[in-house]
Design a protein around this nucleic acid. Sequence first.
DNA 1: GGTGATGTTGCTCGTGTGAGCATTTGCGCA
DNA 2: TGCGCAAATGCTCACACGAGCAACATCACC
Lengths: 316, 316
Amino acid sequence: MTDTDELLSIRAAELYYEENKTQDEIGTVLRLTRWKVGRLLAQAKASGFIRIEIVHPRARRLSIERRLRESTQLTDAIVVSSAGVSSDEELQSRTAQAAADYLTGLRPVPRTLGISWGRTLHEVSLHLAKGWANGVNVVQINGGVSLNRRAGTAAATAVTIAHKASGAATLLPSPAILERLDTKRAIEADRSVAAVLTLGAAASAYLFSAGQADRNSALVDSGYLTAEQVAELVRKGAVGDIVGRYIDSAGNIVDPELDGRTVGIQLEALRHAKTAIAVIAGGSKHSIARAVVGSGLCTVLVTDEDTALAVLGDDI
Amino acid sequence: MTDTDELLSIRAAELYYEENKTQDEIGTVLRLTRWKVGRLLAQAKASGFIRIEIVHPRARRLSIERRLRESTQLTDAIVVSSAGVSSDEELQSRTAQAAADYLTGLRPVPRTLGISWGRTLHEVSLHLAKGWANGVNVVQINGGVSLNRRAGTAAATAVTIAHKASGAATLLPSPAILERLDTKRAIEADRSVAAVLTLGAAASAYLFSAGQADRNSALVDSGYLTAEQVAELVRKGAVGDIVGRYIDSAGNIVDPELDGRTVGIQLEALRHAKTAIAVIAGGSKHSIARAVVGSGLCTVLVTDEDTALAVLGDDI
DNA sequence: GGTGATGTTGCTCGTGTGAGCATTTGCGCA
DNA sequence: TGCGCAAATGCTCACACGAGCAACATCACC
């Protein structure tokens, strides 16, 4: 009997959702009472036969957001739908848009916003509307001025975000990673750098992205690391980087020596921050997203549906 | 204003469809009146942002079926949903199932059912339930007894369909295509063959599939044609075959000489039949499906969603 | 075969929602 | 500035629908 009922529920669902018939009409067609039809439809829904998707670049997955808030220590989660998305680029664009939206609606409005840099953050800056806030000062929290032709992207990101909020941008005039520890100590000791780091460590909110640990990493692209060095980090357990610092799946620094040569705020500053917004999207960033959320590096996660499910452990 | 409205309609849709909130509740959250929310939802639906799919192996696409009935001369159309289908095999299986269902529900129950043979038809025979009808006699309408190890599939199909309907199967003891015209004439003249052909030409209903014109054709597979011969047929405009006869996109015989050596009922028998059910599924059969429907070779089409859209000319 | 437990069916009632209409708002144009 | 038109808004009404309940069928078990 259950088998016939299942088939009937499908026939009913077709008439209900595709043909917009009333349950009563469906009852007439299928020779059922109107209540039976209602129950069949409820059954079809409960069995997951009815899939309702909101196909729109700005659609979100509220149910996943709720699950994230409930099963992690995140105070907030923004999950963009991946319905109808083919490319990773589109996914990143959607996520960046969502991050811009979130930032715009953030209350209280941060006085100082600490930001990292990268493709994702840059896209966020472009998606922000002019006047998204009034008087937010932006400060870079990790090094990374131009080593290559990508010149100025990091700076442009900070300046754009600040400019669109009628605020000022404070840049961190330092490479991301230095070759020698004492050089790093020296540059950190420099007043112009130290002041920025102090400012960054005391920001009222943070906005940062994450990099995956592979040859496509932004740090490799920018010339701070070689593909081989990253491969070695992966061998040591690295899943990706946050503000230039490589972490393993437990959120721990993978290579203390390398980390010592990395310029930027400490991860602890993020861990203790009241508002730390991580923007992470794309299939290659599932592991790092998991590590970031799992180890409490952010209070807010802005991501795509698939990454969110990976964080929740729903994928296999 | 339209832009904000679009965004609002998405937010409303999320709350309505994902969170099962009432329009009134949504109004409270978004600071809108309950009527505005209703209008936003209607707008979201009208704009196609809300996609409702019935994910089930036996789900059909009634709207496409209706369009087919309206814009072609088909008396009936069965279109199975391709939602959640990954492989062509699954699509064919779903379509075969639907064909079996249709045949079971066919009224008046045919006294004699003319059938072709092939992978698809064989699958239909397997999907038919025992006792799907009572006393239907099955007759093969085109030649094709075993030339290779696939031995007996054609016969098995006919016998299975007949057996499950407590009827008898009449096999056509002839190859599909003969090498010489006079051999074909001779075999046709043989009483045992002629009787079957006469019976087949007078069947009360037909059930047949179609083959695509490429190297994967069943006729190539069975050894009746070489891949080169098929390629030559394609050059002449062939899009596929029906009951062993290759036709072009207009439904005309492509190669009269070859057709003269093909044993089976004439296409005209199908064109004039009261009930001619074509079962055609899979991405490679779009053209042949189009040709069959366009040239009136069937009165009923059982197919998959994508093929149906191709027949309607919705693809590009 | 009787009896209780469980699931199914038919129904009442209240609520959510869409159609249709009155009213207001916004906007172009004189 | 004022007028007229169109679009958006607020509302009434009717109705489709789900929750909850009573009656009934079904089945296991004594």
